[in-house]
């Protein structure tokens, strides 16, 4: 039996990029070291909200991402807290060596915020989709990598990121997403949130897949399977403890992410599981391919990012 949830209809609500923009504008009032560097997309990333309040601390360097990152590195070197923001693919993929040499290697306090991550941007198509970004960011020594699930947790993650020293990548999406943290969210970087308890199987997810994981857990419960749902908002440093507990207390782990198969959350969780407590696993992700144009819902369905896909994966690991 399946849930019939082969499609996901994304309900109206805050997009994570918008929650980030609001939280950033608010944080700007509390700490005047915060500066923003933009690459001509502030109306897409919502950093225009910061710009409107603090124009003197806002720099649009134009469509020039390598320069953007270098400028952010210099601002950090001079004691500022720069937030470098663009589409995640243009930040991570276009300016990777600048990030490596300017931010990661010298351990500069630069906050990279990439929006329009994943295939759920829809019609603009593959060139605009950040689907390698988590892998690229996780590869950088010293980087913290955060993929929040919804508006409230993005706001909390933004605040936590700005208060914490060190290079960070925060990943946001384009579409409205369901709220999984009604009210204020508690986000402690490096510490996963268990949103639903269960001792049959664990679903570890982040980003838009968290809401789908909760849907899948509902469906599993109807079939008598109790699924634990863990929001692994921080991919790096990963919460080893939460993974070990899941491996010990449940019979298998499903990892769901809106990212390519290699180098993202799935790989990171698998490494912990393999080393500390081997257990059956299954992976829900985009696989090893670029997407196409289509509506966000169509693409999520076509590339297998649905509650049903998670549900099926959970059944697979339980069969093992």
């Amino acid at each position: 039996m399946t849930l019939g949830l082969t499609r996901v209809d994304l309900p109206k609500g805050a997009a994570t990029r918008e929650a980030f923009g609001d939280a950033l504008a608010e944080a700007g009032g509390a700490d005047d070291r915060i500066v923003v560097v933009d690459g001509d997309v502030n109306n897409s990333t919502y950093t225009y909200k910061f710009k409107d309040k603090y124009p003197e601390r806002f720099f649009n360097v134009g469509i020039a991402e390598s320069n953007l990152i270098g400028v952010a590195a210099g601002l950090a070197g001079a004691g500022k807290i720069p937030v470098a923001s663009s589409f995640s693919v243009f930040l991570l993929a276009n300016a990777y060596d600048q990030i490596r040499m300017g931010v990661a290697f010298p351990n500069q306090n630069v906050k990279l915020v990439g929006t329009h991550a994943g295939i759920s941007i829809g019609e603009d198509g593959p060139s605009q989709m950040g689907i390698e970004d988590v892998s690229l960011a996780c590869s950088l020594p010293g980087f913290t990598v955060i993929v929040p699930a919804d508006g409230p947790s993005t706001a909390a993650a933004t605040a936590a990121m700005l208060q914490r020293e060190g290079p960070t990548f925060l990943r946001c999406g384009r579409p409205s997403v369901p709220v999984v943290y009604p009210g204020a969210a508690d986000v402690h970087i490096g510490k996963a949130n268990t949103l639903r308890d269960g001792d049959d199987v664990t679903i570890i997810a982040n980003g838009i897949m968290v809401a789908m994981a909760l849907d899948a857990a509902e469906g599993l419960a109807e079939e008598g399977v109790e699924a634990r749902v863990v929001d692994m908002h921080t991919v790096k440093p990963i919460d080893q403890n939460a993974i070990e507990l899941a491996a010990r207390e449940t019979r298998g782990i499903v990892v769901a992410e809106e990212h390519l198969a290699y180098g993202g959350l799935g790989s990171t969780v698998a490494m912990v599981v393999a080393e500390h407590r081997p257990t059956p696993m299954a992976f829900v992700n985009i696989g090893d391919t670029y997407a196409t144009s289509g509506t966000p819902e169509e693409l999520l369905t076509k590339f297998g990012l649905t509650p049903d896909a998670i549900l099926d994966a959970a059944k697979r690991v339980l069969k093992d």
């Binding site: 603009d124 144009s293 289509g294």
Partner: peptide, 25 residues
């Protein structure tokens, strides 16, 4: 820009003859 169409949001040289480079970045 519709699902399945080779006329993607940005040009994709693998899907549409006449497109010489996949661009958009």
């Amino acid at each position: 820009r519709r699902l399945g169409s080779p006329l993607e949001g940005h040009p994709n040289m693998c899907r549409l003859p006449g497109v010489e480079a996949s661009t958009g970045s």
